[in-house]
Design a protein around this nucleic acid. Structure first.
Lengths: 106, 106
DNA sequence: TATTGTTGATTTGAAAAGTCAAGCACTTTA
DNA sequence: TAAAGTGCTTGACTTTTCAAATCAACAATA
């Protein structure tokens, strides 16, 4: 919450997007729906405990959707909801900025 | 780095923006240049140790600029560089998304 | 047939990151 | 004269993230 205790959706959006791995998850899911481990690999090796927590939170907020297609062996599919897909504009802005202003360090 | 060890500017941009407080800092500085404590208050009470570290990193990457106008009593002014100002588009996208999709919880 | 490798998680203890409170040396305000 | 403000730094403490082990069931390999 913060910012004088009244709810600010922009502050809340920033709080959400700045959680570690969240933007990477969005980026990967914008590309294609994925399973749990597949997603972990796609975003560059997030550990499963953190990933599970992020996915739970994003699901709870209605940004992503989880479909279980098999129980044992486990098989799940995570995809973006409409709200999630709307983050494509944020991603595009970040991509454009990164390509324009970030260079290989050293 | 990650993503097969070759440098990906988009991955790097995400890594930068997902550091805690970074987006809040950008947002506050897009509004106006500010001093250290003023900035801490504006973004909702980030502690000084973390803030100092974030500002150092952003400065190093050329996103913000630090000007010392007085040594004792100390007085500094942080502002965005061109690269920093270019993040306005990212902020605008985040703002639009937050207002459209985030509601007061409960 | 037996081993190995998948799948989506959860649990562990240890490492890393972030927070908190105090303090610095000095000016301005009350 | 005292209190409050400036921009940080330091060391102790708490929270978050981490890698590794583990699970049951099946597929593919040896």
């Amino acid at each position: 919450m913060k910012e004088g205790e009244r709810f600010c959706p922009v502050y809340a959006a920033i709080e959400l997007l700045q959680e570690k791995w969240t933007l990477h998850i969005i980026r990967a899911l914008l590309e294609a729906p994925r399973g749990f481990n597949e997603l972990a690999r796609a975003i560059g090796g997030c550990n499963s405990a953190t990933l599970a927590q992020r996915l739970a939170r994003l699901s709870e907020l209605g940004v992503i959707e989880k479909k279980v297609t098999s129980h044992m062996p486990p098989r799940t599919c995570y995809s973006l909801t409409e709200a999630g897909r709307a983050l494509e504009e944020v991603m595009r802005a970040i991509e454009a900025w990164g390509r324009r202003y970030l260079r290989v360090p050293g």
